[in-house]
Design a protein around this nucleic acid. Structure first.
Length: 701
RNA sequence: GCGCGCUUAGCUCAGUUGGUAGAGCAUCCCGUUUACACCGGGCAGGUCGGGGGUUCGAGUCCCUCAGCGCGCACCA
């Protein structure tokens, strides 16, 4: 028996050594897997594309969860004889990273505004590459058996070029268009944002009712109302039936009399307020749509920094935050303020990074025409080409695809992939290089989801790389349920659009990792758990088990330190089970007696049960069953019952029990390996059954 | 407003197609007879949120109500 079993299992001393050995072995690369292992599937591929972590900081508990789940699937399939590829990556994370970097600049008393764009880009690139190394080291420490030789970065030159070519193809296919439309504008970050980059918050805002000629109109935003010269009501509203569409009238307004025009539009809710509203098309989505329907002119009231433009006359140059009370005061003095409801509940859109109130602004941007693409995605789901785990997420996916709105892919930030579009005299062309003299390049960059949406294709080298189509489509997309409408649909759409097939057949969605009381982790609450602190204290295997057991797909998890501690004890339990067997059971290939055959049968049923769980993505069940068997069946009962046998004189019984224990230990280590790769590999290296690494040993039958 | 999810032992959660309620941690009692005190043995603890229905049988399926959480939405 190896002397090491006389001391408790020491994860810290073991894990780096084991990971190094795995990496050296080359088996993370599916092209190097042993032929006898692959024989089981005749070399079929199994591919998971890693959701590329943002290369802008440390890994958090959510990363630890997805790395654990994906590594379990990869290791399981590898042991089942698949050419298992888990392809790692790193995301430049456009806006996210730029926000992180801007905070860093702020701390240094600097600002991105006024910086040379190329200089800023280079600084962020250096920062990102440094973080990327850090991130990769952390992924390794969690035991990820991914193929580093294939690692991709979203700013690799070939990735950038392919992303740009996709845009060009979409431009030629009429799936992207240049549109002057309402966008979500963040004053702090000076960029437009997609709908998924904003959050809604319900807030209590004063609701003002003003006299507008013969009408009363309601608003929460008096500061936008300078240019309001269209008064809108529902065509069926009996109260206003005497007012005709297009009719004009003189009204006294903020800065004097104006000529207003009556517009009838069914977008107006008759039940709300007085049923009459004025519109500010430049700064409201719904007003914009009404204005479009009636071909009304629109004018910008607030500039890109949040200050009132000259149309506001005496208020020009004032920040809208400060302008509101002043304007209300003026309207009140003019006798135009009818009432104020101080308890009005209103939904306000905010920037998901800085919580700045989002301003609708009208801007020329590139939009993806979503309807035809989304229809393809719905068809694929209807045909059963994509399965969701848990399956209720299919409804959410479907809802999102059936209500898809056109996607703004232009960002006014430097940190991203440049949009290959050129403009001359109002005409736009899409091209990698300038179409000729006088063409001006679009300065904007792509929304980061435009590139990450193509990730499964890009990692496989679409359309002509050596891994395409060997490792495309991939098998499982494992990611957080919060990405069900941010990332997953975009991957499905790009996969179908570019390759005519979905990029994966299964979408496995995990929940959030919360704190011990089920509360969302946040820096401001101070309840953030650093996964590496836990692995340093209890070992990586312990953390992995704590993240998996009892964590049903799609549901959130409360991560408690005592749970991690419990599985550290379990790793040690395996250690001591091994010690007992090595000390007491001489190696034997004796035929099993009746008692031991029954034990073997019981174990075989466990193997079958666990295998089914794994095939059905019930990793949480499999892990718990293995834990129960190892501790409360094998250790508590079978080993205890073995003691008198080994102390006795019945040599046949000893031989039989020894044979059973050795084979069961070997198989149990194999079954546990995907969950607890380090301790199982370390034990495996010291038992008689060992041939090659446990990582490339066949899954028990 | 629409949609989704959750409500099971003190805490955190499992419970695959409906078949006599489970785990970990915590608590309490006992134990060092040596694989392991990073341990072992044992006790206690739940009318599975309320109500109704389908069924021979429901934590599991259906309806309804309540509470909590989350997402979506152009009510100015």
């Amino acid at each position: 028996m190896d002397e090491k079993f006389k001391k408790p299992y020491d994860p810290a001393a073991t894990e780096p050594r084991i990971y190094e050995a795995w990496e050296q072995s080359g088996y993370f690369n599916p092209d190097n897997l042993p032929a006898d292992l692959l024989a089981a599937t005749e070399g079929k591929a199994f591919t998971i594309v890693m959701p590329p972590p943002n290369a802008n900081g440390n890994l958090h508990a959510g990363h630890a969860l997805f790395i654990t789940l994906e590594d379990i699937l990869t290791r399981y399939k590898r042991m089942r004889g698949y050419r298992s590829l888990w392809l790692p990556g790193a995301d430049h994370a456009g806006f996210e990273t730029q926000v992180v970097y801007e905070k860093k600049l702020e701390k240094e008393g600097r600002s991105r505004f006024g910086m040379d764009p190329q200089e800023l880009y280079n600084e962020i690139l250096a920062f990102t590459l440094e973080n990327k190394k850090n991130m990769e080291a952390q992924v390794r420490s969690l035991g990820a058996s991914c193929d580093w030789s294939r690692e991709k970065f979203t700013l690799d030159p070939d990735v950038v070029e392919k992303v740009q070519k996709t845009f060009i193809k979409m431009f030629e296919d009429g799936l992207v268009y240049r549109g002057k439309r309402t966008v979500n504008w963040c004053y702090k970050h000076q960029t437009s944002l997609s709908d998924v980059e904003t959050e809604n918050s319900e807030e209590v805002t004063p609701f003002y009712t003003f006299r507008y000629g013969p009408f009363e109109i309601g608003t929460v935003r008096p500061e936008t109302k300078f240019g309001d010269k269209y008064v809108v009501m529902h065509p069926d509203d009996a109260r206003y039936k005497d007012w005709k569409h297009g009719q004009t009238l003189e009204v006294e307004w903020i800065n004097g009399p104006i000529t207003a025009t009556v517009i009838k539009d069914s977008a107006v809710d008759m039940e709300f307020g007085t049923g009459v509203m004025t519109i500010t098309p430049w700064h409201s989505q719904i007003d914009f749509e009404i204005a479009q329907r009636h071909s009304l002119p629109m004018e910008q009231i607030i500039d890109w920094r949040g200050k009132l433009l000259p149309i506001a006359q005496e208020f020009a140059g004032i920040n809208i935050r400060d302008a509101r009370p002043k304007i209300v005061e003026k309207l009140k003095e003019k006798g135009l303020l009818v009432s104020v409801d101080e308890n009005y509940k209103n939904v306000v859109k905010r920037c998901y990074k800085c919580q700045t109130v989002i301003e609708p602004q009208v801007k020329d941007q590139w939009f993806v025409k979503m309807a035809p693409l989304a229809a393809m995605a719905v068809t694929a789901v209807n045909k059963g080409d994509i399965r969701f785990i848990p399956d209720n997420f299919e409804k959410i996916f479907r809802y999102w695809m059936e209500n898809a709105i056109d996607w703004n892919i232009s960002r006014q930030i430097v940190w991203g992939i440049s949009i290959p579009a050129w403009e001359k005299d109002g005409e736009w062309r899409a091209s990698l290089t300038s179409p000729g003299e006088g063409w001006v390049k679009d300065e904007d960059t792509f929304d980061t989801w435009f590139s990450s949406g193509q990730w499964p294709l890009l990692t496989a080298g679409y359309p002509n790389g050596s891994d395409f189509p060997t490792y495309y489509p991939s098998d499982v997309m494992e990611t957080g349920h919060d990405l069900i409408f941010k990332w997953v649909p975009r991957m499905v759409i790009f996969g179908l659009y570019l390759s005519d097939q979905p990029p994966f057949h299964t979408v496995y969605l995990h929940g959030l990792v919360n704190d011990a009381h089920g509360k969302k982790m946040s820096k401001s609450k101070g309840n953030v758990v650093n996964p590496l602190d836990l692995t340093n204290k209890y070992g990586t295997d312990a953390l992995r088990m704590a993240l998996v057991v009892g964590n049903a797909p799609g549901t959130d998890l409360a991560l408690r330190e005592d749970k991690v501690k419990g599985y550290k004890h379990f790793a040690n339990k395996l250690w001591n089970i091994t010690r007992f067997i090595l000390e007491n059971a001489p190696v034997s290939d004796a035929t099993l007696n009746e008692t031991d055959l029954a034990l073997q049968q019981e174990f075989k049923e466990l193997v079958a049960d666990v295998t089914t769980d794994m095939d059905e993505y019930r990793m949480h069940m499999a892990a718990e069953k293995l834990y129960q068997y190892a501790w409360h069946r094998l250790a508590d009962v079978i080993l205890e019952e073995s003691k008198p046998i080994f102390l006795g004189t019945d040599e046949a019984a000893k031989a039989s029990r020894s044979a059973f224990l050795h084979s069961t230990l070997a198989d149990l280590l194999a079954l546990l390996h995907p969950f607890m790769p380090f301790v199982t590999e370390e034990i495996w290296s010291s038992i008689p059954a060992k041939k090659n690494y446990l990582m490339v040993t066949a899954w028990p039958k």
